[in-house]
Design a protein around this nucleic acid. Structure first.
Lengths: 211, 211
DNA sequence: ATCGAATTGTGAAATATTTATCAACACGAA
DNA sequence: TTCGTGTTGATAAATATTTCACAATTCGAT
């Protein structure tokens, strides 16, 4: 496998690769060995051209008669999106959303695990919540640095967002997934994804409304 | 205000309009009357050109000296993304995520409200959960049709996704926000947004990892 | 009055992403 | 063997989105 410059894979393609992999796991469990682009496309609700384009971008080739070999494809996707040594994630803010994400994600991925949670509510700290240890926020910086945490999921109250984001950045976090409604700013070299439920609902409402 | 063809506003712009509005609400509360594109941009972590382009697309003009009049802009955004008569949302699946979304969203928007939840667990049904009435899933279809629900948030277990999606579509739902890990398909005329936490985390992990 | 600094609005360019199209190939059937 | 069908891989075209660059405007200072 040649050293492709995977850095240049479009973000949208990375997202789809993650989803391809999940669907392919299911297919393996169903005993399937090979799959055609149009089959994968149908399961993801895309076009087959899109699937082939994505696989072309990661340098995977199938055969014209059998399509793609599922286990090879899964392995290649793993090589691309997983980090060899694994990556640690923490959840900051154990309200409803923080707990939902923690329990939903736990155990889903081998190379990517939620290792701890943080909150400022003494009712929640120093105990196991949704399957992970929850510490007080004043231990955040030390924990990140000692454990080598690279990614934080931010689910604190809006008014705490900037303060906590600063803590994370000071501690040297590499990626933040911000689920608060407050946009944050990160320096060069730190990656940020923001997602807001209200925005998604409003967008959908806009598309739906005909008037 | 001329009848612009708002249908043609790019999806990305709609998302930002929703966020502009929220930030502008905050600014109003702080007593601000006017705002410049670069101020709004900074708060959203965008460029000022992007802000001006978005406002151009919705036909709003500011003044070169005072920038934009916040309350007019908020009103215009409301005219565009809100539906006059309001829209009803239901949440289907009251696990952790469903409850988190419900309690997070409730009361956030005047024209957009979560009116009910549905689950198949008798422990949860026929009582108020996270502030909204929760019914058994077998009442889903009737409720949608009688109440004129246009949008559903799907937070059921993966294995139930297709079945519940079919119920929603049969009942004539107009938009689905799918938070399950299973992609679904909707017919022409129904709008779909899919979001998956695992995918977001994997994408971020990919970007973060340097190796 | 005139200048200079700051701002908006927008055509054009750049970039990102998706889709169309089709040659090349592989295989099974006749 | 030859034909027909169905598939991949890839170039080119189309579409979507962001950014550049700058003319036009406004207003305060001199």
């Amino acid at each position: 496998m040649p050293n492709k410059n995977y850095q240049e894979i479009p973000g949208k393609t990375v997202e789809r690769l993650s989803q391809y992999r999940r669907i392919l796991y299911d297919s393996i469990h169903q005993g399937k060995m090979n799959i055609y682009s149009h089959e994968l496309a149908k399961m993801m609700n895309l076009t087959s051209v899109q699937v082939r384009r994505d696989l072309m971008l990661i340098g995977y080739s199938g055969s014209q008669s059998k399509g793609y070999v599922i286990k090879d494809l899964v392995a290649l996707i793993g090589n691309i999106i997983d980090s060899k040594q694994g990556q640690k994630i923490i959840v900051v803010g154990m309200g409803n959303l923080g707990r939902a994400i923690t329990s939903y994600f736990s155990g889903k991925r081998e190379k990517l695990s939620i290792v701890a949670a943080f909150d400022n509510d003494l009712q929640k700290t120093d105990r196991v919540v949704s399957g992970v240890p929850c510490y007080h926020i004043n231990k955040l910086k030390d924990y990140i640095q000692e454990e080598g945490v690279s990614i934080a999921v931010l689910t604190v109250a809006p008014e705490a967002t900037h303060e906590v984001a600063k803590l994370l950045l000071d501690a040297g976090i590499k990626g933040i997934l911000n689920y608060t409604s407050v946009p944050i700013k990160v320096p060069e070299g730190v990656f940020l994804e923001e997602y807001d439920i209200v925005t998604s609902l409003e967008k959908l409402a806009f598309m739906v409304k005909a008037e």
